[in-house]
Write a protein that binds this DNA or RNA. Structure first.
Lengths: 142, 142
DNA sequence: CGGAATCCTAACCGATACTG
DNA sequence: CAGTATCGGTTAGGATTCCG
């Protein structure tokens, strides 16, 4: 038991992200990240789809991810992929062709998180107009 | 039509967070933030509850928020609250007692986002052990 | 192709002090 | 109580170069 919040046994539910000392706060910090959300959504098949296509999870190459996330630098992309691999959310597969081919694919754990972050991206897109309207009003009365 | 991705009319769904030029990417950057998640969850009533309490949304004072988010600095808290107010996710109410009392409460828009970020925090807490286990394995083989 | 390594700047963010 | 203002350290993160 390293830094749990309580001693309720090994059956989980003992973490509390509100506590500064709890590791789940650091995890939340990792997950609540623009590039993490977009990488997961890309591997979930959400990018470049017609609105009616079901968006099935798929393996993607490094260069494909770099293209789909149009604003990302290779440094941020690599860094994000490494941390997600370390946390067990995706797998990195090197195919020794020449030149090398590297593919990334969501694990079951990553798929379970995909369901959450996908809704976050959808929310951002679908409520963009509301937010923009509120901002205008807020900035106007200042 | 400022920076939409397509011209599909004024009925929304035209934003695409994968595009670097799209404002929804910036919005996602705002929302995908540790303190945003925790402030919303706190105002959603998720903090300091017994596991079986339903967690109903509630108005909170500045000092209460500061106490619930144990690791936050007043600067980050104020900054987070301001941006959320500007985006129309919460309301700031000043009661002219002496000394002043300021309460924050989620708007309907904020409540709809609460449903999303709440799941993100829950995921982080409930899958903490899985992630920790993967990290150990990853670090061991390096 | 898929990175790693280096440099460098901008921003984030905490600590402190002050205000209505 | 609920902030604002300022300062300064740390880091995020872009640009560039090089490697297997």
């Amino acid at each position: 038991m390293t830094t749990r919040t309580e001693e309720t046994g090994p059956s989980g539910a003992a973490y509390n992200a509100f506590l500064a000392v709890c590791p789940s706060l650091m995890l939340l910090d990792r997950l609540a990240n623009k590039w993490v959300v977009l990488v997961l959504c890309a591997l979930g098949g959400d990018a470049e789809k017609a609105p009616d296509v079901p968006a099935a999870p798929t393996a993607l190459r490094y260069s494909e991810l770099a293209r789909l996330l149009s604003g990302v630098s290779q440094k941020m992309l690599t860094q994000t992929l490494r941390s997600l691999e370390r946390d067990g959310l995706l797998t990195r597969t090197v195919v020794p062709t020449v030149p090398v081919t590297v593919t990334y694919e969501l694990t079951d754990l990553g798929l379970s998180l995909l369901g959450v972050v996908r809704r976050l991206r959808e929310w951002a897109q679908s409520h963009m107009d509301d937010v923009l309207a509120h901002r205008e009003k807020y900035d106007a009365r200042a």
